[in-house]
């Protein structure tokens, strides 16, 4: 069975009426034009995601998300909620659009000229893409941790203090200390780094740098933390620490994590979303995705079969 055929095989599972807001603006890229079957599916609003795209207590709610880079369609009609206190893992083969999706959520794609984004993106019901949205504030509320740790070439203290300072979260040095030490503590770094607060962030080990970046992200009290392969350059010990940290943080934040490690996804997340060729194929409880997925493509991916 071809992949496209398998996509169409997905049983219908419509949890909410779809709004096609800007159907005319979404052009199929040239390369996809020779697949009329698939276009029909899409126009009829079929070929939907298997499972349940909704969350009981959504922090972020995305509907009809389409992203193009120039003429290339990177995401097709994605619908997904991210709930409060949940960790959702985004998995899928390289190039399927995971990072693109994550970047939509805090408008990191704004910086890419060729990117064209349609759909609705809400953070606690507020439109993320509204004209009056303060993007700097948005990126504090929806923080991001990247694949390669990227501390500033400044002291450890300054790395964490930077965000709270520009957002005016501390009115005194003592308050700032509280925020910085508290964030390092929650990132599991305080004991290791207490005596080195003036060292440069860049002088730390990779795993420490990544946890420093997480401390920096949580220092500004985010509502959502987005992580794009946060452990891919870390050893198993540093990875285990980050995973514990994710566990810890999930009590207070909604977390979306991209990972290429099936077992990491299985370990850290409660829900898992499987992307394939720009489509969201299946979203369900992580246990289900890894023991008995509902879609053939998900099954092929998580078991390491030829797609």
């Amino acid at each position: 069975m071809s992949n496209e055929a398998a996509i169409m095989e997905a049983p219908e599972l419509q949890s909410e009426p779809r709004r096609i807001e800007d159907a005319t603006a979404v052009q199929e890229p040239a390369a996809k034009r020779d697949e009329p079957m698939m276009m029909d599916e899409e126009q009829e609003g079929k070929g939907h995601t298997v499972g349940d795209i909704t969350a009981a207590d959504p922090v972020i709610s995305v509907r009809n998300c389409n992203v193009h880079y120039d003429d290339t369609c990177a995401l097709k009609n994605i619908n997904l909620d991210i709930g409060r206190g949940e960790v959702i893992a985004l998995i899928g083969p390289s190039g399927c659009g995971k990072s693109t999706f994550l970047r939509c959520l805090n408008r990191m794609n704004d910086t890419i000229d060729s990117a064209r984004i349609t759909g609705t993106f809400n953070l606690y019901g507020e439109d993320i893409y509204a004209a009056e949205t303060d993007v700097v504030l948005l990126r504090a509320r929806v923080g991001m941790v990247f694949q390669k740790p990227n501390p500033f070439p400044k002291s450890i203290y300054e790395n964490v203090a930077y965000g709270p300072r520009i957002h005016g979260l501390a009115t005194s040095r003592a308050e700032m200390d509280d925020i910085v030490y508290g964030s390092l503590e929650r990132a599991g770094l305080l004991d290791e780094l207490k005596s080195r607060m003036d060292d440069r962030g860049t002088s730390l080990s990779g795993g420490q740098q990544q946890r420093l970046c997480i401390a920096r992200t949580i220092a500004v009290n985010p509502e959502v933390i987005l992580m794009d392969e946060p452990c891919s350059s870390l050893d198993p010990i540093a990875t285990a620490k980050i995973e514990d940290l994710i566990d810890e943080l999930s009590r207070n934040y909604a977390i979306a994590i991209i990972t290429h490690s099936m077992h990491q996804a299985a370990r850290v997340s409660r829900r898992t979303a499987y992307f394939h060729l720009g489509r969201l194929i299946e979203v369900d409880a992580t246990d289900k995705i890894f023991t008995n997925p509902g879609h053939r493509l998900t099954e092929d991916y998580v078991t390491g079969r030829f797609g």
Binding site: M262, F290, T291, V302
Partner: peptide, 9 residues
């Protein structure tokens, strides 16, 4: 291998 899904079953 850390098998998943059908393989795990």
């Amino acid at each position: 291998r850390g098998p998943t899904a059908t393989d795990l079953r």
